[in-house]
C-alpha cells in the first residue's frame, strides 16, 4: 500500500492538472475536485499507514500498548473532505448559474470581468 498510494496520488494530481487547464468549466471543476482528493490522500499517506491497530487504550491500562494508528490525520482528512464538499457544492451551483447567465461553459468567453 505504501508504494501504491503515492503513485495513485501522482496520477490524481496529473489528471487534475490536465483537467484544470481545459476550457470547459465542468472539466475544470472535475479537475479541482481530483486535486483536492489527491491532497486528502496525501495527508493520509504522509502520516503513515497501518491496519488493524486501533488507537484504543485497554480498559485496565493508562497508556496505549504497542504500535497504533494515528487518529489525528483521519480527523484532519474528514474535516478537509467536508470543507471540500461544501466548496464543491457551491461551485456546482455557481457553474450552473453562470452557464444559465452567460449561455456558455467555455472559459474563453469569460472575459467580461477582465476587460
Amino acid at each position: 500500500m505504501e508504494n501504491l498510494l503515492p503513485i495513485a496520488i501522482g496520477i490524481l494530481i496529473a489528471c487534475g492538472s490536465y483537467l484544470c487547464m481545459r476550457r470547459n468549466l465542468v472539466r475544470v471543476l472535475l479537475g479541482i475536485m481530483l486535486f483536492s482528493q489527491a491532497a486528502n490522500l496525501l495527508i493520509f499517506t504522509a502520516a503513515g499507514l497501518s491496519s488493524g491497530q486501533p488507537p484504543i487504550i485497554a480498559p485496565d491500562k493508562l497508556t496505549i500498548a504497542g504500535p497504533h494508528a494515528d487518529p489525528l490525520p483521519q480527523a484532519l482528512v474528514l474535516t478537509a473532505i467536508v470543507i471540500g464538499f461544501a466548496v464543491l457544492a457551491f461551485a456546482i451551483a455557481l457553474v450552473l448559474r453562470a452557464y444559465h447567465k452567460t449561455g456558455s461553459d467555455d472559459l474563453d468567453t469569460f472575459r467580461r470581468s477582465d476587460s
Binding site: 489527491a38 486528502n40 496525501l42
Partner: peptide
C-alpha cells in the same frame, strides 16, 4: 487550498 493541504500533509508526516 489544495496546495495548503498538501503542505500540511508533508509537514505532519
Amino acid at each position: 487550498s489544495a496546495f495548503f493541504l498538501v503542505g500540511l500533509g508533508v509537514l505532519y508526516g
